[in-house]
Nucleic acid binder design. Structure first.
Length: 232
DNA sequence: CACCAGGCAAGTA
DNA sequence: TACTTGCATGGT
């Protein structure tokens, strides 16, 4: 998997994380925030729709868009398939980027419907790698969206990396400046037990941390991770 | 007012 | 290949 790494090559990794330290990080965050109960969706389809709608977008706005679809009973494979792009775009307006996201959603829905039919569980029966390749072949589904679907809908032990993960690890000197998606994913997956529930909770906790701490400020006071960093 | 939010693809050189 | 830009609403 090629991926751009945005300038600079093979700089030394500041520190090497160990499995124990990552578990410490998880324990600290869990103690601080408690269980996150992710992904907030009633069905696998809703989860997948949310995964596309939340691309670079506040979750609150995604909820409004999903509520629009739900209230009009449009949140089914068949209903979505038979909509026009423009009609779908209007429903998901609150989520922003609504024109491009309407296309992306339609690409994803049609991909699943064409390959597997209306029953999503058929799609989720395949091997993890097969599902991933299928998802990534859809225009509009990149690594994070695909892995989110694998983790939270297909319930596979795949660690999801997002902008918060990059920022938090950088903020605490735990990853190199220009680490790629797959480098960080390997970091977590190589040093943690292969456990879908752990990965689910961990990713959700990282997002929660990113929303509250580790912002673009010189300090993040009271950040639960400061202890973890000092002891590292 | 500026800046951010649970990315991705297309365009440019 | 390396970097930039478009997409867009709603909250702080």
């Amino acid at each position: 998997m090629k991926e751009k790494r945005t300038t600079r090559d093979q700089e030394a990794v500041p520190r090497t994380l160990t499995g124990q330290k990552l578990m410490d990080m998880f324990d600290l965050l869990f103690a601080h925030f408690g269980p996150q109960d992710w992904w907030p969706a009633e069905t696998d389809l809703e989860m997948m729709v949310g995964a596309v709608l939340t691309q670079n977008t506040n979750w609150k706005n995604v909820e409004r868009a999903i509520e629009n679809l739900k209230s009009k009973h449009l949140l089914t494979v068949n209903a979505l398939c038979s909509m026009s792009i423009d009609a779908l775009a209007q429903e998901i307006r609150p989520a922003g980027y609504y024109n491009i996201k309407a296309r992306r959603l339609m690409n994803l829905i049609h991909f699943m419907n064409d390959q597997y039919g209306e029953d999503l569980s058929e799609f989720f029966r395949d091997e993890t790698q097969i599902i991933r390749e299928g998802l990534l072949s859809v225009n509009g589904v990149g690594p994070e969206t695909a892995d989110s679907i694998l983790l939270y809908a297909a319930r596979r032990p795949v660690f999801v990396i997002d902008a918060y993960t990059h920022r938090i690890l950088k903020r605490h000197g735990m990853s190199e400046e220009y680490a790629t998606y797959y480098e960080l994913q390997e970091l977590f997956m190589d040093h943690l037990p292969e456990d879908q529930e752990l990965y689910s909770e961990f990713h959700a906790l990282i997002v929660q941390t990113g929303k509250n701490y580790c912002k673009r400020k010189p300090l993040c006071l009271y950040c639960p991770l400061e202890k973890w960093e000092r002891e590292f």
